[in-house]
Structure formats: structure tokens, C-alpha cells
Design a protein around this nucleic acid. Structure first.
Lengths: 112, 112
DNA sequence: CTCCATACATAGCATTTCTACCTATAGGAA
DNA sequence: TTCCTATAGGTAGAAATGCTATGTATGGAG
């Protein structure tokens, strides 16, 4: 899948992976990858900065823990995060419907 | 509609507006706007650079003309442009299906 | 003891869209 | 005439954001 098409939609996906319950970065990455049949195998350089962005924005909150000697940062949705997710779902739907219908639009409005 | 969500999908839309027949820049902008009920009212600073990009890429070809004293650049799809449009439609469908299903994904795969 | 997998992180790059301007012409208003 | 608006095309610079490449650190397999 081409790189830039994801722009603006990543945040919604990340929030969605946390809807079930808390997860750490790697688990989020893997959940996205598996849930989409490998179509969204995002590099860590995409995931981690995005999580930091979401945390700065107050949509998720992270806590450090150590599991088997490896430190983990486990994120969970905040209340604003839940709201943002709902909004993002709606925005996505509207966006997708708009583009889909435009790409199917024949004939196009006459504009001379 | 937020700005960056369109990234990577604009080219497909522009190509699609030319499927019916040639159009000049302003007409493309208006066709997009009308066909989407005003949801895609893109600024000219978005349209024109994108058209130049598509022309450089050989997907559309433009010719100058003068109508009522105003110069116009009328674009039409090239053969590679038609192919690119078909590919873009397919890519969009795959992308949209992937995101839609991911946003609906509950429960997410367990990844511990 | 080396190699690999897990886990988190960041610097710098590339792409793309947007904001804000600019040029030019025609036609109507003041 | 002069000004304003609509049409038509254009660009520079900013902003956003995902990617590549690389780095740190730990534990376990071979």
C-alpha cells in the first residue's frame, strides 16, 4: 500500500486498537498487522511517534512497566480518546463515502 | 474535512473528473465541488500544482486555448492516465476496505 | 559468545496539501 | 474613468505526517 495514503487516518486506527483494552506499542503494531491480513504492517518509526503525538494530545495515556526484563509502555484510551475515536470513525465514514462516490461519479457535473 | 486526510487520493479524483472528457482547471475544481455536495471544495493552490504533477507524470496532457479573452489550459487523460485511474480506483477500494474493516475490528487479535 | 527477537526511540527526509499571495482579462457599477 | 467582481491560472513557503535508517537495551537460542 502506498505510503502517503494513510495520512490523517493513522490516529483513528491506533485509537481503535486500544478500544478493547490497554496495549503496548509492539502489540498495537501487531494487532493492526494481523487484523488487516498484513496489509497494514507499519514500521515502528511510524507507530511510536504517532503514539507520542496521541499522548501529548491527551487521547491516550501511557504507563511504564517491566515484563521479562523488557520495559514496556502500555497505553490506554482516555475519556477524550474515546470521544475522539467516535468522531474519527464518523469522519472516516464521511470521507470514504465522499471519495467513493466521487470516484464512481459519471457523468460529472457540466461546468462550462 | 480535515486537510491531510486527502493526501494520496487527490490524483485519483482529478483523473476521474477527466474521464468524461477534457476540462480546464477551474472546471475540474467545480466539478469536484458539485459532485461531492461541497465537501471537496479544494483551493486552487491544491488543484493547479496537482495538475502540473499529473502532467509531468504523463497521466494527463494539457493544451492552451483562449476563450473570451481568458487563456485556458484544457487537460485530457492520456492512455497511461486511463490505466492509472483504473489502478487508483482499485487501490482506493482496497485501502478503504482495509481501514473500514480495521475501524470495525472488535475484538482485536490478542498479541501478547 | 554470537545472533536474533523483542521493545522503544529519534533524526532527517520526502511528499503533499494548504494559506496567502500574485498576474491578467472582461464586464458591470459607481 | 475608476473600481470591483468573477474567471482563470500560477507560485512561494508553511505545516503535517508517515517513512527510512539507525540506535539503545534485554533475554534467550544456538
Amino acid at each position: 500500500m502506498r505510503a502517503e495514503v494513510l495520512k490523517g487516518h493513522l490516529d483513528a486506527l491506533l485509537l481503535a486498537t486500544l478500544e478493547d483494552g490497554p496495549r503496548h506499542g509492539c502489540a498495537i503494531k501487531e494487532a493492526l498487522c494481523e487484523a488487516t491480513g498484513g496489509k497494514l504492517d507499519l514500521p515502528t518509526g511510524t507507530i511510536y511517534p504517532a503514539l507520542h503525538r496521541l499522548e501529548r494530545a491527551g487521547l491516550i495515556s501511557g504507563t511504564w512497566s517491566v515484563v521479562a526484563g523488557r520495559r514496556r509502555r502500555t497505553y490506554k484510551l482516555t475519556v477524550p480518546g474515546h470521544e475522539a475515536l467516535a468522531g474519527a470513525r464518523q469522519s472516516w465514514q464521511e470521507f470514504a463515502d465522499t471519495i467513493s462516490s466521487a470516484l464512481r461519479s459519471t457523468p460529472w457535473p457540466a461546468t462550462n
